[in-house]
């Protein structure tokens, strides 16, 4: 869907911000561009809708070289979300969300329908917010509106530049979950810039790690954690990459590989119940916090067994590494 082919960006004469980057992003995937500041991830993103010019190489969206398209048309067909939401303070929420449809001169009926649909999608009441202004909304709400605005004309591709970077951790986590839900429904091809490895693991179908303008590794989150290609990637994903990789697996995965213990219903003290959808990192945290010696696992409200720390450990050693 999106193909980078030897893409290079040079500022001035010498400074190579992006250096010969090539990879492909399949349709409907979220690929997270990860790396420290100044690694070239944002520049790479901004070359896709040509907010930055491409010095060398080519970027194809849906098989078309972006440089062959009219810049304005190209941008209207690519959703764009930035960290500081960039909502227009002089416009109402409705006008903000409908910014691109207004540019495309949609008729009123179509716009109203689309606005209502998008607001429902992001979980804000369409009528309550229609005539309000951005500054009246909380940071999280503004960011949601920013996402709705980017999706207004239903572009197949979306670029998101640290969209949740300015939010506090609780709100960020909630919006990440909501966004993944929305993505299930809309199935966009999304390029997502982040400097947070946990966010990348959570959001990404693929992760592209950048350093000094070069693409270090492009893999699925589990591959990246299990087999970092070089020292930089190893260091960037952190010492706790085993732990991080646990967040990619749920209790259900564990059950499919290992039998659970029998739940001892008579044991009264220290038990806690989780569902099979819980990820193993959270399950392990509960066990380590000594909230329980063992966890009772439920599937469809029925008890299916119990698990302890050594189950997680065994699974990690035999099935992840």
């Amino acid at each position: 869907m999106i193909k980078f082919d030897g893409v290079t960006k040079v500022y001035g004469d010498k400074v190579k911000a992006v250096d010969d980057v090539s990879f492909e992003v399949p349709e409907g995937n979220i690929v997270v561009f990860l790396g420290p500041s100044g690694c070239g991830k944002t520049t790479t993103l901004r070359m896709v809708n040509r907010l930055e010019s491409i010095t060398e190489g080519k970027i194809f969206v849906n098989g078309t070289d972006v440089n062959s398209l009219n810049q304005i048309e190209l941008r209207r067909n690519i959703g764009y979300v930035i960290q500081h939401n960039g909502l227009f303070p002089n416009m109402t929420i409705e006008d903000n969300v409908m910014a691109v449809p207004n540019l495309l001169s949609w008729d009123r009926k179509k716009k109203t329908d689309r606005y209502n649909h998008l607001m429902d999608l992001i979980g804000l009441n369409p009528d309550e917010y229609r005539k309000r202004y951005p500054h009246e909304l909380s940071g999280g709400q503004q960011q949601r509106v920013g996402i709705a605005r980017a999706m207004a004309a239903d572009p197949p591709v979306m670029l998101m530049d640290e969209p949740f970077g300015a939010l506090d951790p609780v709100i960020r986590s909630r919006i990440q979950n909501e966004f993944l839900q929305i993505q299930q429904e809309v199935k966009k091809t999304i390029l997502f810039v982040s400097h947070d490895i946990d966010e990348a693991i959570k959001m990404g179908d693929g992760i592209a790690i950048f350093e000094g303008g070069k693409l270090m590794q492009y893999d699925s989150p589990s591959e990246l954690l299990a087999r970092p290609k070089n020292e930089f990637v190893r260091e960037f994903v952190g010492q706790d990459r085993a732990l991080k990789s646990l967040s990619l697996h749920t209790v259900k995965d564990l059950i499919s590989e290992r039998m659970l213990r029998k739940a001892d219903g008579l044991q009264k003290h220290n038990k806690k119940t989780i569902t099979v959808e819980t990820n193993l990192r959270d399950a392990l945290s509960i066990l380590l916090n000594q909230e329980a010696d063992q966890l009772f696992v439920q599937a469809n409200n029925k008890l299916v067994g119990a698990m302890r720390i050594d189950d997680v450990e065994a699974y990690l050693h035999h099935h992840i590494k």
């Binding site: 907010l51 190209l74 941008r75 209207r76 939401n85 909502l87 691109v100 980017a150």
Partner: peptide
């Protein structure tokens, strides 16, 4: 940021 957003949305 507002100018960037305006450009990114495809305004002339």
């Amino acid at each position: 940021h507002i100018r960037d957003a305006a450009n990114g949305l495809g305004m002339s």
